[in-house]
Design a protein around this nucleic acid. Structure first.
Lengths: 412, 412
DNA sequence: GCGGCTTACTTCACGGCGTGATTTAAAGGC
DNA sequence: GCCTTTAAATCACGCCGTGAAGTAAGCCGC
């Protein structure tokens, strides 16, 4: 433990650069003037810092707007083309690799279906590396232009010792049969790019917070409703990770002590009642195999008024409302975003029921301060969310382009 | 929004002073040498900062220890007598005001029973102010020597606009019938001292974290088990408050959707199964009136092997274990501390059952990183916890003794 | 179409910061 | 009594953000 690592005047500068860069990234083109008001920096410092960022090519001027008879404001924005980001979604049926510019425009993507070796981590690592090489080559992107590779995976991600550049990352994915898979090491063997690995649900949540329904909230919970149920907690503007990066396992909250058995082994988990897998299984009338098709069929049956389906969905709304009430009581967020592919599908139908149930189950005071909304991003946002991992690092560092000259000849 | 308020070199100094002061406060006497290693500051800066703090009288030298043939280290510690703190516990039957020195030695205390006007906030404010004047007078403490008054109250505390020095504090206490009580304004009318108000459970949790079973943990949850059930969440070393300061309402987590009715109006809350009030009521064999005596009687009956009592407590352990599993899954803490007066009473008996239940209900990975322990502080720690509120402000500010010259003639 | 006005931005002297090298202080060992 | 060892103080240096003063670049009234 070495204090808080905020000791030197140099850190002050890094902080200023980071603040300015973040503002420009999220709040679009801004003049130096506005930047000063927004960041609390003096006009002199803003000039100084923006001058540096301009010289580094990280930001650029983009026109000017008149100002009431005075000198017009020169607008500044992040230079989109300066660097690129890679996001990877390790899903249940495929591995998707996306290449983005800094303003999250997708330049290329590569989908590779998981074969039956899908549970083999080495195979997954190969697919990731192949997809990475593919998108880099197709877009003619030099490895040095890539800020980093963010990977969203199923399961709990143990970040290992800090400062090892992702090398110590270990993944525990009970549902895909990964037990302490050293994904960091597997990937590091094939690329020298900076690596950032996190749980896929968390990267989707991050995307929803940065670009979707969570924008602007400082305290929020993104509830992810898919085959299972998870959550991504944002406390004071930052992902809340907990002691070992596994915070937010909402799906295994107990809603019926001693109740229905869950795939995690315990009884009475929320997931055992409202997870897509559980819903389809409990309905029993869906063609087996394709979970998404099954859930869509369940929804269609409910829309058609079939009592069993209606009852199941009403019950799911009730349980989700109770689960969300727990989140409201415990985290006191200003916003709850319902995302995930199942949330996207069932959300419009379930939302009124969820709100009604949550109203009854949550404490009045925190509930009055919380807004329950549906996510606005589709499932393809997982890659984008994964790409926010290196992006976040980039913004935190104030736009340091790390010295990666060793990459010039190393292949990606 | 004005950036992060960490802009000037002056803030850097404040940060250094704060870091050094915190270290000295929590990790006892330290030499400048050790201080450097622990804070990450260079030897020069440590000398500089400690010199300043010595000149301000905030710290003092206390002997020296030899060092292997070299110049001996001069030890430094916080000067206990330099300033004083007041902590107030607004309980269900009395108001307790405690005066402490900086090292939390209690110099004086004043208990005032709540009359039947206990639900009247104005009356409570009068008792607090009377107790405050009492302890100050008995110890001959000048108001200017008091860093601030921390008050722990039942209910949810809305801090109001920041920077108003507690003036905007409003308390919503459903259980004591307080609806939007402007406690800040009521107290400000009687004292000019800095005010800090928070939920009593949270102040007790803070005390447990600083001086009790939570010491040293960065991520922890203090589960408070009393008449009702609450929790104090510590994320990354700091109290997690949420959007409107009401985070941690663990007692109303749903353990049985649609189950037993809770005093909050909802059904199936944890509190309705394991709160002391609920336990005594469900047992039915206790003399009415005194809840603590009733719970003690229940415990005695269980120790004597009476089946109804044993069953009730076993069930409570099961529910508490499930509730703690929820906390482990959602917050991923490294430690869970069970506190509160009922926790103090029943803890030793319930702990094995709680651990067994939590093992089964929590996910394996986060549970392996979490330790469930009993609190070590008695209920009188609420006042001490309340006193940590001004203390925390003092340490954060790097030991600024705020300019309160206007207090010299103002009575407390 | 020219001087004044308004607004945006840049420049710069200043005080303050932490660092790291150097110097001074204070012990023990021989 | 001198050398070694360790702790702490001192100081020049480079860098920071501020705030005041100066400059750039448009409008407006005449």
């Amino acid at each position: 433990m070495t204090g808080r690592g905020w000791n030197t005047v140099r850190d002050l500068r890094r902080g200023s650069r980071s603040t300015v860069l973040r503002r420009l990234y999220f709040d679009g083109p801004l003049s130096r003037q506005e930047l000063g008001a927004l960041t609390g920096l003096s006009a002199g410092s803003v000039s100084n810092v923006t001058g540096e960022l301009l010289a580094d090519g990280l930001i650029e001027e983009c026109g000017s707007v008149g100002s009431d008879g005075g000198r017009p404001r020169t607008m500044l924005r992040v230079a989109a083309g300066r660097a690129r980001l890679v996001g990877v979604d390790v899903g249940e049926t495929q591995v998707r690799v996306g290449l983005f510019d800094l303003t999250r425009t997708e330049l290329a993507a590569s989908d590779r279906p998981l074969t039956d070796r899908g549970r083999d981590a080495g195979h997954v690592a190969e697919l990731i590396l192949a997809g990475l090489a593919d998108v880099l080559e197709r877009t003619g992107t030099a490895p040095g232009a890539v800020l980093g590779v963010g990977v969203g995976v199923p399961g709990i991600v143990d970040q290992g010792a800090p400062g090892t550049d992702g090398l110590g990352v270990v993944v525990h994915g009970q549902t895909v049969g990964w037990d302490a898979v050293p994904l960091g090491r597997l990937l590091r063997a094939g690329t020298a790019l900076p690596l950032f690995v996190d749980n896929g649900a968390k990267t989707l949540g991050q995307a929803e917070m940065w670009f979707g329904a969570g924008r602007g909230a400082r305290h929020a919970v993104v509830a992810l409703f898919g085959s299972g149920v998870g959550a991504c907690v944002i406390a004071d503007g930052a992902r809340y990770r907990g002691a070992s990066s596994s915070a937010g396992e909402w799906g295994h909250t107990k809603v019926h002590v001693g109740g229905r058995r869950c795939r995690c082994g315990a009884r009475g988990c929320l997931e055992a009642y409202v997870g897509a897998e559980a819903l389809v299984e409990r309905w029993g009338a869906a063609p087996p195999g394709d979970e998404k098709a099954g859930l869509a069929a369940l929804l269609a049956a409910a829309e058609a008024g079939e009592p069993a389906a209606v009852g199941l969905l009403d019950e799911a709304a009730e349980y989700l409302g109770a689960g969300i009430a727990d989140l409201v009581n415990l985290f006191n967020p200003e916003r709850i975003v319902i995302g995930g592919w199942a949330g996207l599908l069932l959300g419009p139908r379930l939302l009124p029921g969820i709100r009604a149930a949550a109203t009854g189950y949550a404490l009045r005071f925190p509930y009055e301060h919380a807004l329950i909304v549906l996510g606005t991003l589709g499932p393809e946002a997982v890659t984008m969310g994964a790409a926010t991992l290196p992006l976040s690092d980039f913004l935190d560092s104030g736009g340091r382009t790390p010295d990666r000259s060793h990459l010039s000849d190393a292949s990606a």
